[in-house]
Computed example of a mutant assay.
Amino acid sequence: MRIFLTHILPEHLVAEYHLSFAACNFSRNLMSGGGFDKVYSIMPLFVCGEMKTFKEPDNELVYSSLRRKGKVAAKLAIFVEQVSVFLRIGWHDTLWLYNIGILNVLLVLLLMLFKPKVRIYAIELDFTPPTRGFCVMSFYLYLLNHIDGVIKLADSPLFTNKNSVCLAGVTPNRRDKVPLIKKPTMEFLLSGVLQPDISSLPLILDAFAKVRDCRLHITGTCDSKQLREYADKYPNIIYHGVLSFDAYLHLLHSVTFQLSLRNPNWSDNQCNFPSKIIEALLHNRIIISTIHYPQIEGIRYIETVRSEDGFEKALRQIKSMREEELMKYANQSELVQQKFNPNVWNNWMTRIENRLEEK
């Protein structure tokens, strides 16, 4: 039996329990291909209190009663939940993990010690590299490189597991038709995590303050005083706050460009792939990125340098581009679907599992 251990809730509960929409969408997209016989979910550390009841046949939530006894007890609950999953895994099952970390490390160790015939694989989406000496992240990295196989979203030199493949993301197996870009407009979107090293928010704000015939839409959680000042001062900078997923998609379909201006020198950004890129490409938007990504070779996107002057120059160049030139970067949904649909993932999971059998 192939088991998937992840951390999701039904769509209507994701915002209520402050889970990551991107993380839940990834797991749900992967599950839509029917590649798992059983899916278990363990909640992140911060989820505690009563859990609303729900029926979701594709996902069994493992939720300890300790979570209802306060935040301290909730931290212990994750270990009780991992023991519970351990007891449900058969001696010859195959386990796929959503990342390796605090929510499954005890389970991995228990399986290695007491059920050594269980094969353990990981889908490593976003790893935080260790910064000094031996620490818990070093231990997670050691496990990642010594389990039976890995699908990684980035090809960092830190990842040395030889039974591995790099895939940028996964698209849903079934999806509604998404609107095509018929005529590009100078409407840009910055969404998601708005930390400076991830979003480059300060330099983006400065650039749009100077190029005022380009309109910037921003959505996500942010306590930046600078953002609110710029949104008040410049009519072409609009902060929408945190949106529901439906409202976010409506906004996404109203813009032409999705910004992904990550710091290419920050080690964290070398160990993951932005889910927003796959999502925006799937919705036919044009990507502007500061990082070159070999894992999406064959897909067209606009590359720029990460500096205020460099990005301002890129904005002005985009404004001056002919429409037919810009349209070469738009409407790539079908290509992205071909490269990253769940069937592609299922095939790679099978190949990785079979490689171990061939040894």
Score class of each variant (00 low, 15 high):
residue 70 G to V: 05
residue 246 D to N: 12
residue 338 Q to S: 12
residue 288 I to F: 05
residue 325 E to K: 11
residue 251 L to Q: 02
residue 50 E to C: 05
residue 84 S to A: 14
residue 103 L to V: 00
residue 353 E to N: 08
residue 245 F to M: 09
residue 248 Y to T: 02
residue 150 V to E: 13
residue 273 F to E: 05
residue 91 W to M: 13
residue 93 D to A: 08
residue 224 S to T: 08
residue 278 I to L: 14
residue 31 M to Q: 13
residue 75 K to I: 11
residue 47 V to L: 07
residue 235 P to S: 09
residue 126 D to K: 00
residue 214 C to N: 01
residue 221 T to C: 10
residue 355 R to Y: 12
residue 122 A to I: 08
residue 190 L to M: 12
residue 83 V to N: 02
residue 112 M to Q: 15
residue 245 F to P: 01
residue 8 I to N: 09
residue 39 V to T: 15
residue 35 G to E: 11
residue 54 F to C: 06
residue 218 I to Y: 03
residue 192 G to M: 09
residue 358 E to T: 14
residue 240 H to I: 08
residue 44 P to C: 04
residue 101 G to M: 00
residue 216 L to M: 07
residue 357 E to H: 10
residue 110 L to S: 07
residue 64 S to F: 04
residue 251 L to N: 04
residue 41 S to I: 02
residue 304 T to P: 01
residue 127 F to Y: 14
residue 102 I to Y: 12
residue 83 V to L: 13
residue 324 E to H: 14
residue 239 Y to K: 02
residue 267 S to Q: 15
residue 46 F to D: 11
residue 235 P to T: 05
residue 131 T to Q: 13
residue 67 R to N: 06
residue 96 W to T: 02
residue 275 S to V: 12
residue 219 T to H: 08
residue 144 L to G: 02
residue 21 F to Y: 15
residue 182 K to F: 13
residue 71 K to V: 14
residue 196 P to G: 03
residue 269 N to M: 07
residue 30 L to H: 06
residue 94 T to K: 06
residue 204 I to D: 01
residue 227 L to A: 07
residue 300 R to N: 13
residue 131 T to R: 11
residue 275 S to K: 02
residue 150 V to R: 05
residue 121 Y to C: 03
residue 54 F to E: 09
residue 133 G to A: 02
residue 284 N to V: 07
residue 48 C to E: 15
residue 53 T to D: 15
residue 41 S to F: 01
residue 67 R to T: 05
residue 69 K to D: 08
residue 100 I to E: 04
residue 175 R to D: 13
residue 230 Y to A: 15
residue 334 E to W: 08
residue 225 K to N: 14
residue 180 L to V: 10
residue 77 A to G: 05
residue 67 R to K: 06
residue 149 G to I: 05
residue 267 S to G: 00
residue 329 Y to T: 04
residue 52 K to W: 00
residue 132 R to C: 10
residue 305 V to F: 06
residue 330 A to K: 04
residue 255 V to L: 07
residue 119 R to G: 10
residue 96 W to V: 04
residue 239 Y to Q: 03
residue 346 N to K: 12
residue 221 T to N: 14
residue 129 P to W: 02
residue 27 S to K: 00
residue 26 F to C: 11
residue 193 V to P: 00
residue 151 I to T: 03
residue 51 M to R: 04
residue 157 P to D: 09
residue 182 K to H: 15
residue 60 E to C: 02
residue 17 Y to Q: 06
residue 289 S to I: 05
residue 303 E to R: 13
residue 264 P to R: 02
residue 224 S to K: 03
residue 334 E to S: 15
